[in-house]
Lab assay of single mutants.
Amino acid sequence: RQGFVPAAYVKKLDSGTGKELVLALYDYQEKSPREVTMKKGDILTLLNSTNKDWWKVEVN
């Protein structure tokens, strides 16, 4: 499932696989259909980080 999360809630990881991955630093509950819920410690695939406030991710 793809959607947006606050950029301040995730940290980029060095995956070494060519995929950009991020680590969820905090729990986040989606507040609109365009967002996704994540739990602290989740590893997500980063799809787009051009917006400084909201990053598009895919929940694996």
Rank of each mutant, 00 (worst) to 15 (best):
F4R: 03
F4G: 01
L21D: 03
K19N: 12
D27K: 02
K19M: 11
W54A: 02
R1Y: 06
T45I: 15
G3S: 02
K31F: 06
V5T: 01
S15W: 14
G3A: 04
G18Y: 09
V5I: 08
V10M: 06
T17Q: 13
Q2W: 08
P6W: 03
Y26M: 13
N60E: 10
V59C: 10
E58V: 07
E20Q: 15
P33K: 11
D27F: 04
L21Y: 14
G18L: 10
T50C: 11
K40E: 07
L25R: 04
G41R: 02
Y9E: 03
N60V: 12
I43Q: 04
T37W: 04
V10A: 03
K11D: 07
N48Y: 05
P6I: 04
G16K: 14
Y26S: 09
N60T: 13
Q2T: 12
S32E: 08
V57Q: 00
S49F: 07
T37V: 03
N60C: 14
R1N: 06
A24N: 00
P33I: 09
T17A: 14
L21H: 09
N60G: 15
L46W: 01
R34Q: 12
V5F: 01
T45P: 15
K39R: 12
D42C: 06
V5Y: 00
F4I: 06
L47A: 03
N60H: 13
A24G: 03
Y9Q: 07
W55C: 02
K39Q: 09
P6M: 03
K11T: 13
V57H: 00
E35P: 04
Y28D: 00
L47R: 03
E35V: 05
V59G: 07
N51T: 06
K12E: 06
K11G: 06
T17I: 11
L47Y: 03
E35C: 06
L23F: 07
K12I: 11
D42T: 06
D53G: 08
I43G: 01
K52D: 10
V57M: 01
V36P: 02
K19Q: 12
L23Y: 10
V5E: 00
S15F: 12
L47F: 02
Y26L: 10
S32D: 11
G3I: 04
V10C: 15
Y9F: 13
S49I: 07
K11M: 14
Q2I: 13
T17K: 12
Q29E: 14
V57P: 00
R34E: 13
K19C: 13
G18N: 12
L23C: 09
F4M: 09
K12D: 04
S15Y: 13
S32C: 10
R1L: 07
K11F: 08
V10S: 01
I43N: 03
L44T: 01
Y28N: 00
W55L: 05
N60L: 14
Y9A: 13
P6R: 04
Y28G: 00
